[in-house]
Design a protein around this nucleic acid. Sequence first.
RNA 1: GCCCCCAUCGUCCAGUGGCCGAGGACGCCGCCCUUUCAAGGCGGUAACACGGGUUCGAAUCCCGUUGGGGGUGCCA
Length: 520
Amino acid sequence: MPTTGGGPRVRFAPSPTGYFHVGSARAALFNWLVARQSGGTFVLRIEDTDAERNREEWAEGIVSALHWLGMDADEGPYRQSARSARYAEAVDLLWSAGALYACDCTRDDIDARNRAAGIATPGYDGFCRARGLERVGPDGGGRALRFAMPHEGTTTVADVIRGDVVFPHGAMDDFVVVKSSGAPLFVLANVVDDVDMAITHVIRGEDLLPTTPRGILVWQALGAAGWVPERGGAYPGLPVFAHLPLLVNEQRKKLSKRRDPVAVEDYRDKGYLPEAFVNYLALLGWSPHDGREVFTVDELVEWFRLEDVNHAPAFFDVAKLTHMNGEYIRALPVGEFIERCRPWTSGGAGSPAGGAAPWPSRTTAPWPAGSFDEGAFARMAPLVQERVATLGEVPAMVDFLFLDEPVVDEGDWARVVGKDEGAAQILEAARAAYGALGAGLGDGTGSGAGFDPETLHRVTQELAESVGRTLAKTQGPIRVALTGRRVGPPLFESMAVLGRDRVLARLDAALRRLGVPPGT
RNA sequence: GCCCCCAUCGUCCAGUGGCCGAGGACGCCGCCCUUUCAAGGCGGUAACACGGGUUCGAAUCCCGUUGGGGGUGCCA
């Protein structure tokens, strides 16, 4: 295999046509792993030759998402849009060598001829191959340039994952290498770049497997025509190929941007941890021999082997990803959990969390800027941490602490308070019992019969017994009155952090809501 | 149509001729724990697509069938 002395050179070569696709992220990961585990170089190349479909913001999104995942490029990003002169040189050379021919057929011409010939094949029929049309100019002049496929023989793709895959030339048509506008196409630009950038391993999705023999033919034609790599030195032999199984949806179709949740940016914004995301991605098509599923990136770099990658497509299972993310969140030291929550907690409603930071791009805290209480959140954090699977779920667990009025979930209110005839009695009893507890101890540092979780638990237990209910049944209406929801972090800790005054005020508010006059 | 790839529980993987009456994880179901909800613990559900070979022996090797997918663009 060709190298430049410093280990393998791999590349991740996405086309910026939309949000960063999870399938692309996995391809990037596997490339990155090969580079990391063998002292190689991870090259990033933006394949933006199709000006119609590419946008600068998408390219920036790719760089930013790769950074988030911890896979910064060692080299690049290179841009194909900045290398057109190089492609033009390659085309000139190929043309002079007779590997290409000009063609002025339109798609309609081709289809019409195929229909007339009774051929159902959609491919090109080679109509212009022997016409000897001249190249009109470097801008194409309305004539596309096609690659003259050998009629006989086969091309074999030596794939590390699948073994040798043989493609008969007879089944491949004369594909277009340069558009009639003069713009180079994927096969040409991609191969020229791989040669120039001294790429040794091409690791990409299986959807590219059928076009690989074309690339190989171009690679060989370039070499035969005397193409000199940009970095100098001998013309390199073919790179090692590895075609990864596709990522599919529940219908077993290739993951589509349009209907599947494939944007890495969305997972980031929802509060998935990059290390969990990478861990899950690695498991799609690969697994360590000892069957472990949770491991660090360092372990992944050490254990990963391209040869061990599966052949079959894998379903991207968000449920499993989410579970794994929960495991990672729970494993975090509390202090770090608090820090990692910051984008979802410290922002103010309406303004992007984190101020000028580009990320998270769409999340905002549901409470007004400035009303977030660092200390209160820190006290609740351990309890929240073990109850969320994504950081995006955090605000809903603690919003009652930072909003003047709790957001009442009408369904929960109806179910736990409205339909419960004993609710008013419980709330009144709770108002009295909690009101009798010592004031001013809501900061949790007080002693004695203060407003602390233990006391609140005991008092509520007594209250439950006095009304002949279980503690579980008793805390329901109280929880909804205080937090607006039926479920949430443990009640007594929540009350202690909320403080006596707000607890009493919210109980009063709930009673008013029920039509019971306050003050008995 | 043609070319190519693929095939173990619903899902992701383990399994590379005997250790497999197939193992783990997610999901789902039940129980336990429990102030809600989670988490955690315990148990359960559930698969080698089919048919031929090869072999003393096949989930594992070969062939075929069926099924699924990808490609077949002046997209990448």
